[in-house]
């Protein structure tokens, strides 16, 4: 069994700023923010696909490690309803970057990242299932966790924790009919 013990904590990491400068050169109005070690780029939905593509192709972010959404309906002072976050990782340098975009009703459509990362397939289906955000260009966008006939998107903030009674909606089998 080949095993390696490389001290990879001492690698040279391409400064985040250079990536940002390069991105800003290509895309106008790109916002950035930072919290702990999470560095974020905030883009408009229209630019999202191009930003992701440029990050993948030009900056070596080859692994989509996370993709999730949040519903900011009850968030203090929130302006936008939904946020979608992509977490990208460069497997060579170990650098991470988060790309965030915001969405508002009624236009809940984003370009699908499936053509860039096959791993986006199920992640997008889950976001569609839980939040009802549509992904344009996804090959097979249908519910993944909830039953096909389910109505509603459970992780939206206006959906109650205990549901609307779906969990009680089954025929009862008693001893007599079994």
């Amino acid at each position: 069994m080949p095993a390696r013990n490389v001290d990879r904590t001492k690698r040279i990491i391409m400064p985040f700023d250079t990536i940002i400068t390069a991105l800003k050169g290509r895309f106008a109005d790109l916002a950035t923010s930072e919290f702990r070690d999470n560095r974020r780029v905030v883009v408009a939905p229209a630019q999202l696909f191009d930003v992701l593509k440029s990050l993948q192709e030009e900056h070596g972010f080859d692994l989509l490690f996370e993709m999730t959404a949040a519903d900011y309906l009850k968030y203090p002072n929130a302006v936008d309803r939904f946020g979608v976050v992509y977490g990208l990782l460069n497997t060579v340098t170990g650098e991470r970057v988060f790309v965030k975009t915001v969405l508002n009703e009624p236009d809940l459509t984003l370009p699908s990242a499936f053509s860039l990362w096959k791993g986006a397939d199920w992640l997008e289906r889950e976001i569609y299932d839980m939040y009802g955000i549509l992904f344009d260009g996804h090959p097979d966008l249908r519910r993944i966790l909830m039953p096909e006939a389910f109505a509603g998107h459970p992780l939206r903030k206006d959906y109650p924790l205990r549901g609307r009674g779906e969990r009680h909606n089954f025929p009862v089998i008693t001893r007599a009919n079994s």
């Binding site: 006939a149 109505a151 779906e166 025929p171």
Partner: peptide, 11 residues
Amino acid sequence: VPADVVTAPGD
């Protein structure tokens, strides 16, 4: 359970 609720699963 409200009557207008479209509920899911099955039989």
